[in-house]
Design a protein around this nucleic acid. Structure first.
Lengths: 196, 196, 196, 196
DNA sequence: CATGAATGAGTGTTCATTCAT
DNA sequence: AATGAATGAACACTCATTCAT
């Protein structure tokens, strides 16, 4: 147990791979370096993942599923549209702090992966956009939001969160700072920035 | 002159390279394929660009400079904060329709490029964020906008544009449709989406 | 005792190895597969054989010794030359039924090549055998040869040539020596070796 | 033109590959070594052959086709059965002098095994050939056989048995069938196939 | 200028072998 | 004795780059 870095060998490898892929992207990441970072031999990586691509995909998949679960949990607690958007903002920032460096590389780097998997990723993406659109449209029905194009706004909202989180990614927020960020973000989207 | 696609050999190659890089990303694009697409021999690429990396960088550079010029031109004509933001939205959508497929790959794929260039790209990025922040802060002073965190909003705004443009990228807007899109986008940011 | 295939562990492993080596040849046979086939763990193979090569050699050795014993036993019973040759033929056929698959696949290492190509090679082989058979049968019709089984003789003839040529391969024949070799070879096949 | 070894690059490579494959067999032959032997770079091999396997197959194919042509040419000139068989013997010897080393080493994949063992195997092989030779010579002394070259016949006999057994290997003989096969085989060798 | 044949450094992956349990 | 998780040496193949023509 030379590396008491916790977790099974498989988890150690995924952890290391996430770090390396995040810094170097898929193509420049070397299996050997990942193995080294994980404190295992190069061959050991192949005991748990049948290829570099499979390793990459499993990391993405885990991230996507975790994100979905966290979002679902937040939405389960939320009552109003405002609370729902708040939840999405919160989990987005948290997830991006973990996965964004990787995601930045991912969009295109996955295009070459077999299309079923790429399609799955795209589907996940659209699921989230549609989730936001549905929240927006529900809010319009409840008279909480004014009448807008829900999908158009979902693009702006989701992209905006990515843009914001991507740049705050290196900072280590306290709980309070994070809540303040969420509050203000939501405020801008809800009330707009124009002087009344 | 097998490919009378106009422009000098150098331009032909950059055109072809943009197309290939956009589809495959940096690492999966092959010089040979780019040369073929450009209708020249593989060696000819090296007459104009000393490496694959140099070719990639020159394309990014050209894109960045063109974007800057277009933004500058728009801002020159704009008076109000609203008009300025409008201009940025317009040029963003137009640029993304040309460069976004490439940009999707770019963020990380450039991380490995020599840091001076990467720094230059990041600087460009920040210049645009700061430009937006400045416009926002100027708007606040002019009492056109309410008091907000300019940089925070710039992240949301710039990322939102990318998110939106990225998904509209395949569509071919008429002039009118584009203007409607801009108007609505601006409307959401300015007035917010909450029911008054 | 999952595989009660009788015999000691060592014998089980040799049995399995013979089967796998026969189908795949030495290099394409995997220790893991042999272990699986033998119903033991991968490490157990190394309890009995210090390397893959040693295992291979022991199988060949056992085969060779068994062959020798069987031949010796036959020859012990034989009186006349005819009986002795008979004994050798009998044991050869029996041994080849056990070991030939091993020799056959390793023979050209082509078994692993895509089957269309392997089929093409086999077809070539049969074409030549059939060619010889047809010549034999034509000779029978012309009354130049006595009545025999053409294909059976073709096997003997073709294999015999290979056996002969294979051992003369290092020698550098003069034209005259080659012609003498041919003449004698043909003479043996045509007239037989028995004293009239 | 560092290696004026004649022929195109492709021919140089095939020549070198034949030599290396002949000595080492398919799996132990290294592309790098073949390239070196051919006096070209490793990458150059892949300019002409898309894989190691393809290179191997092309060599075998060329050999097979050349053999066919030579046989056909001989048969075209031959009138009698005797002349035809003569032609086949001649071309077989010639071809084996070129290609047999390839078949011989791949035959048992044992060439790479440490030479003591390989020598042991060869010794066994020769023991059997000498055994047959001795039986033949003893038969000559006993006046059972006519005067022939014992070793030469041993090659033909031993190789012929392998050729025959190799093709009957899949069949399941009854005791009676096996005895009939033996009887006929022996009959051909003893009495010859010529019409008296 | 233009070319494409030649090159070899670099990397994903396999698998015989080891050894802690 | 028996195991299988861990290992790393070894190799086919790719592709950016060069340079003789």
């Amino acid at each position: 147990m030379p590396e008491s870095s916790g977790g099974s060998k498989k988890e150690q490898i995924m952890e290391a791979a996430l770090a390396i892929f995040s810094v170097k992207g898929f193509h420049l990441a070397k299996i050997e370096e990942i193995a080294q970072q994980a404190g295992v031999g190069k061959g050991t990586v192949y005991e748990y993942f049948c290829s570099k691509e499979a390793l990459f995909k499993e990391i993405l998949k885990e991230g996507a599923l975790t994100f979905d679960q966290l979002i679902a949990a937040e939405l389960g607690k939320a009552k109003t549209t405002q609370e729902k958007l708040e939840g999405i903002i919160r989990q987005s920032v948290i997830m991006w702090q973990r996965f964004h460096p990787l995601a930045k590389t991912t969009m295109m780097e996955t295009a070459f992966l077999d299309s079923p998997f790429h399609a799955w990723l795209m589907e996940k993406h659209y699921q989230r956009l549609f989730l936001i659109r549905d929240i927006i449209e529900e809010g319009m029905q409840k008279q909480e939001l004014r009448s807008i194009n829900g999908l158009h706004f979902a693009y702006l909202f989701y992209g905006g969160l990515a843009g914001m989180a991507g740049f705050y990614v290196e900072e280590d927020f306290t709980e309070d700072q994070l809540e303040l960020l969420i509050e203000k973000t939501l405020d801008y989207y809800l009330k707009g920035i124009a002087q009344k």
